[in-house]
Simulated scan of single mutants.
Amino acid sequence: MAAFDHDAHLTHQVDYRLMAGGFVTLFWRQTILEETIDWLIAHGYEVVRLDASGWMGEADLHRDFARSLDFPSYYGRNLNALNDCLSDVAVCDYGTSPEATGLVLVLTGYDKFAVRCPEVAQLALDVIADNSRSAILVGHRMCCLVQSDDPNIVFKPVGATAVEWNSAEWLNARRCPE
């Protein structure tokens, strides 16, 4: 299911818009995130939610990824091991169903973790982006939706691609508290 419909750029499908600019997308408003998730679920995507707001360190990230994606018991609980296991998830060895349209990782409260562990937070997104690109090359879609309570959060490019705001909140004015 890697290829999108030839006219996806004209029909502006949600999944196409999310992945066209990169595989990691920022969200601020919870309602827009939930609408996006609902659309993805309705179109056959498997959604895995991870609440990063309580992660105090790298060990918490690894614990939740391992549990949520059924990583093997030998998982090394470091960023290199995360990369290795996500490469297996990308080819549907575990953690996702090959029958699904794709896998969507949803990281909520990620800004709180990024404040506590900025380098790990950045590198984890980079690992996800790299493996999402690999997934699509073998016929499986994979992307990451990153929710932030900080409307001004910025990450360095991941997977050699900038982390951008979703299309509904792309303008700074759309992220001003009401």
Score class of each variant (00 low, 15 high):
S134K: 14
D150K: 13
P157M: 03
L10I: 00
M1E: 07
F155P: 14
S134M: 13
A20C: 05
E35V: 02
E119Q: 15
E58R: 09
R141S: 03
V89S: 07
S73Q: 15
I32P: 03
Q13E: 10
F27L: 03
V146S: 15
V138S: 11
V154A: 13
I32T: 09
Y75R: 06
P177V: 10
L10A: 08
L82E: 12
K112P: 05
N172S: 09
T96A: 11
A42I: 03
F4E: 05
E46N: 08
V120H: 14
R133D: 10
L61P: 08
L26G: 04
L26A: 04
N80P: 13
G44Q: 03
R141H: 03
Q122K: 12
S167W: 08
S73R: 15
V115N: 07
N152L: 05
T36L: 02
N83I: 02
H62T: 01
D126K: 09
F155S: 14
D84I: 08
E58N: 05
V115K: 00
V106C: 15
L86H: 11
C85H: 02
Q30P: 01
P118I: 07
L123I: 04
P98K: 03
E169K: 01
C117F: 13
V47G: 12
Y94W: 15
K156R: 13
G102I: 00
